[in-house]
Design a protein around this nucleic acid. Structure first.
Length: 269
DNA sequence: CATCAACCCTGAGAGC
DNA sequence: TGCTCTCAGGGTTGAT
């Protein structure tokens, strides 16, 4: 489920429920969910911490506590929500934080167990290596152009590389490349300044629209989003391109399912 | 530095 | 109905 717009949507929803609450205790149901520190230290350190802020950086939840930062990454199948403190445990619950006051709990549920949680004092330990935040002011078209020029990589894997640009996932990358009429296999340093500007706009446009639609709901994982109803190419193999009507094709790029319009997106055009 | 395969896991959906 | 196979939104690691 989780790309930038979905994480943003969840963070916004959680905010009013979490700010000002204290963490009474942590129940770690699947120890490997914890990236750092170890279970004993984690449970001891988080106990009594007050939640000061909750936000997002790339695809990470950033939860600022009295003395620590709590980072949560949903990876492929994670979800984060509030329940009544006495609600029954669900099948794939991995970490439960009881909140006070209010008799609520924050539940991290993650079917495939790929998600991770960090409790650290220095945020850079977790997010220090991330590339620019695509919706921030510091991320400019010029920066994108220079970044593309400075490497020789295929466009799509580079856009998915979180150290190059953070927050893009498989869906929104396919959507942005189609909007910009660029082929996912095109060499990054073959993109000219004008095309880079178009791509920059497309990236921001698809992410903003994703947020506006509360994210995209695919499969059983994430509910409540509407953006899946507005996909241009993602998961639309065989259906008409919204621009020219040509049938959408599916290929594999960097081990990821990739969707293009073979007419709108051509290498070296 | 760039690319690729394997891996961390579970469950949905297709095909038989 | 039930079995087997393939595939999935992400990211890390080690080999080439």
């Amino acid at each position: 489920m989780p790309e930038l717009p979905e994480v943003e949507t969840i963070a916004r929803k959680l905010q009013p429920e979490l700010i000002g609450k204290s963490i009474l205790k942590a129940d770690l149901l699947w120890p490997r969910t914890l990236a750092t520190p170890g279970p004993a230290k984690f449970e001891k350190q988080i106990k009594g911490q007050e939640i000061r802020e909750i936000g997002r950086r790339a695809k990470y939840f950033v939860i600022k506590l009295s003395d620590f930062y709590l980072f949560i990454h949903l990876r492929m199948s994670g979800d984060l929500y509030i329940k009544e403190v006495d609600a029954a445990e669900e099948k794939h619950d991995r970490l439960v934080l009881s909140l006070d006051p209010g008799r609520k709990k924050l539940v991290f549920n993650d079917t495939r167990k790929f998600g991770r949680v960090w409790l650290v004092q220095n945020p850079d330990e977790v997010i220090g290596g991330l590339g620019p935040e695509p919706l921030s002011e510091e991320f400019t078209a010029q920066m994108l152009f220079e970044g593309l020029q400075s490497r020789h990589r295929r466009l799509k894997p580079l856009l998915l590389d979180q150290s190059f640009l953070s927050g893009m996932g498989n869906i929104y990358t396919d959507e942005a490349l189609h909007m910009a009429r660029l082929h996912p296999l095109a060499a990054s340093d073959s993109v000219n300044r004008e095309q880079a500007g178009t791509l920059w706009e497309a990236i921001r446009e698809v992410l903003q629209e994703g947020i506006r639609r509360n994210g995209a709901s695919i499969d059983w994982v994430y509910r409540g989003g509407e953006y899946q109803n507005y996909f241009r190419v993602y998961d639309r193999k065989g259906q008409p391109c919204p621009v020219c009507g040509t049938a959408i094709e599916r290929l594999v790029v960097g081990q990821r399912g990739t969707h293009i319009c073979p007419n709108c997106q051509r290498i070296g055009s």
